[in-house]
Nucleic acid binder design. Structure first.
Lengths: 175, 175
DNA sequence: TCCGAGTGATACACTTATGTCTCATTCGAG
DNA sequence: CTCGAATGAGACATAAGTGTATCACTCGGA
């Protein structure tokens, strides 16, 4: 029940941040009243969605970090793990929560990414003169584009992370 | 008057597609009634904004094409011309107009981009095995990221097109 | 079987955005 | 200066979303 609502909310809110509670309840197959029983205010639902998205992406990045040796390998595993969560990820990027806990977790994720970028530079994987924000924005974009292309059927899921990884490092030019 | 409203609308709608007419009128420094005189319905205003954005981006891409020799040069000029229009461009990407004329113009722009990508492959600038939709999505993303970084003050406007161009072709890896 | 928690449907009040209308004011052309 | 068009302010009706409350129903456990 609660999970069905959260799933429907992610699906609709990722596409349209202004999706109405009626739409979400209908998609979840529950009455709007029941939705309000689990999430009294709209903001409660949004916060719960953000929290779940963070849980999932943090679990994915944690797994990618855990037993990876190099930063290069970490990046690859992170892309592989996070691209299938593209809608979650995109939703997070667009929502700025006003709850302190969620803000803090988001900050932590951003710092993790910044550290990864620094490590990639140290390893000589990323060019040293690439600005950190530029690199971060492109990693974000790769995840979103890869997920979109998979969802549109233009790209086989198995190749998505590989293509994103290579494009990120080598670009689209003829090598 | 009319132009002030359009400018305010682009500014606010690019950031928030659901911006209210009151906000837009206030930002333009006009009464809401006057806004309705020029654009009876919200959809009229949105269509006018889309039309102006298309005028500007088409003018930019047309100028980039006009006296450019190679497709490589066309791409470079297009990036240089369109990145400063980042907010316009981003707005267009998010709005799907239901007016036939605007849809047709958008289609034409997409086809122009597809042709450019094919030409870039013919010239050996883009790798031949890069899917067309993948390349198009990345060109879009480069424009948006570059504009965002410039707007955030992380990147000098003069370097934006150059950095975007090089990242697109060569990626972020150490070459 | 009976009871109670959970659910769906529905009604209600409230808020916000939209579109229409009126009226007094202003500003520029003649 | 005078007239008229355009403007700003505001009232009004309507629609949609949100949050609350109520009521009847269902289903599972005691």
């Amino acid at each position: 029940m609660r999970q069905a609502i959260l799933d429907a909310a992610i699906e609709l809110l990722a596409r349209n941040r202004g999706a109405s509670l009626s739409e979400i309840a209908a998609r979840a197959g529950v009455g709007r009243a029941s939705l309000h029983r689990h999430f009294p205010l709209r903001s409660d639902l949004v916060a719960a969605v953000v929290r779940q998205c963070m849980d999932e992406t943090e679990a994915a990045t944690a797994a990618a970090t855990r037993d990876a040796g190099s930063a290069r390998e970490t990046l690859w595993r992170m892309l592989e793990a996070v691209i299938p969560l593209g809608d979650r990820y995109h939703f997070l990027a667009g929502v700025v929560s006003n709850e302190a806990e969620l803000r803090a977790r988001h900050e932590a994720e951003m710092e993790w990414l910044a550290r990864l970028i620094d490590d990639l530079k140290s390893e000589g994987v990323l060019a040293a003169n690439v600005p950190r924000t530029w690199a971060a924005a492109h990693i974000d974009a790769q995840i979103w584009i890869a997920w979109t292309e998979v969802a549109a059927g233009h790209l086989a899921p198995a190749h998505a992370a590989d293509l994103a990884f290579r494009t990120l490092l080598e670009g689209l030019g003829r090598r």
